[in-house]
Design a protein around this nucleic acid. Structure first.
Lengths: 248, 248
DNA sequence: ATCGCGCAAAGTGTCGACACATTGGAGTGG
DNA sequence: CCACTCCAATGTGTCGACACTTTGCGCGAT
């Protein structure tokens, strides 16, 4: 049933702000019209991404309306937003439910992510200043600290921050938005995959090499590492989860 | 004012079906819940893409509700869908209007398109059968006929069909969906750009080379041509239009 | 005991109404 | 003549109600 835990926030407090910041960097200004609907959307999205609302869980617009102390209209709007982010399925005249994702679909999305992060690397090498690349180095420092401490949660969100900063340094805002949207869909599985033993150290080494390639403006190296980073993520997911039947 | 011309259909009749088919291939199954809202969305989207509803044109939910003989609720839903496709801007508490796009934004989107069509080429070479590639050849035949006849409208839609078929042959449905969404945003400008003198013949030659590269399974050539095809489209747009100030 | 039918409960999509925000213009004062 | 203020008109966001659909449970027939 997952009672009113939806609004509960778990995890470390200092990560909370970062989390909210990052999850919705893509959606700034696209908030649509109603801030009420957006607030509901945000709460539910966080709940889904963090696994509190598991795949298949049915969401009831009347219940949600009561819970958020509003009418069903903004709730419906929020559900349609979630559907567009592929976090929820809203079948006509049937109950909406939290979407599940087949491994094949994850793979498709990672193919896209790999390609687009290749583009990010390309643009970043061409356009970013040394100071901006230094900012990436800072993020990498946080990752190192998290890995040292074995803090999977911290690593996860700082990694999202790293990737998002990269995208923003590409100078292509549309690209940043779309990557962020793709990320939103994948967060729930990525988080899962980071728990694999050895994954943190591995990932960290890749990040180091990537930042070095950026600093040296090594285009082909940067592209290759950026893409391979995505693929490592995919393979980790592939190995870590059990998945729904591969149909649509 | 653009009276009730919204539902009017211009252009050749045989293209009408293709047009509808292609414009919304991306949105199959994502229709959201309400088919009523989706119908309104579709009508408005076609109107915007074909230029009957020009950028900046204000849309009034009450008027639309009367026009479609329904209440404002589904209209609002349709407007929000359009906003998600970046065809309409819905500022909070203010009148929605047909979005305009700055050239810089077009460029950003074309950077993404180029990258993703590179991916399409890559996947297609690896996965498509000879029969499937023959299907592309058929589309190319239509393009040749259109170019011969100087039929810009026909060329435009058959080109969309070609590109969409390519995307579907990549075997990556997510990719197809996202490219289709990007296309929806760009159609209004692409159509404009095809009117440039010499553009048709130029584009046609590129398509020929692309199909040949596919047939010969020449990976690097296919990728290069596929991407350059996108960039040619961009440069044509760049040259053909006058644009809004470059702000957001 | 199993299967199918039918009906009540639950839930969605749509509507019309209302409260509030925005807008544009008329009217007033400088 | 211009600038500012205020107000009516227009239009959005939200609400509660209603009609219709789907769901699931009980009941009876086989």
């Amino acid at each position: 049933m997952v009672p009113d835990a939806i609004t509960a926030s778990n995890g470390r407090a200092d990560l909370g702000q970062l989390r909210q910041e990052l999850l919705f960097s893509a959606l700034r200004g696209v908030e649509g019209s109603s801030s009420l609907a957006f607030a509901i959307f945000r709460e539910l999205a966080i709940g889904i991404v963090e696994g509190r609302l598991p795949p298949g869980h049915e969401v009831n617009s009347a219940d949600l309306a009561r819970q958020f102390d509003t009418s069903r209209t903004p709730v419906r709007e929020a559900l349609l937003m979630l559907e567009r982010e592929s976090l929820v399925v809203v079948p006509p005249r049937r109950r909406p439910y939290v979407s599940d994702v087949a491994l094949s679909q994850v793979r498709e999305i990672y193919e896209i992510r790999a390609s687009l992060y290749g583009l990010v690397a390309e643009l970043l090498v061409a356009r970013a200043t040394d100071e901006q690349i230094a900012r990436l180095h800072e993020w990498q420092g946080k990752l190192a600290a998290d890995a040292e401490a074995g803090d999977v949660d911290g690593y996860f969100w700082h990694n999202v921050g790293f990737r998002n900063t990269e995208a923003s340094l590409s100078g292509n805002r549309e690209l940043q938005r779309r990557l962020s949207a793709l990320g939103l869909q994948m967060h729930r599985f990525r988080h899962l995959s980071l728990s694999l033993p050895g994954r943190l150290a591995n990932s960290l080494a890749d990040h180091e090499r990537l930042v070095r390639a950026y600093a040296e403006r090594d285009l082909s190296m940067a592209i290759a590492i950026s893409r391979s980073l995505v693929w490592r993520g995919y393979h980790a997911i592939e190995r870590s989860g059990r998945w729904l039947a591969d149909e649509r």
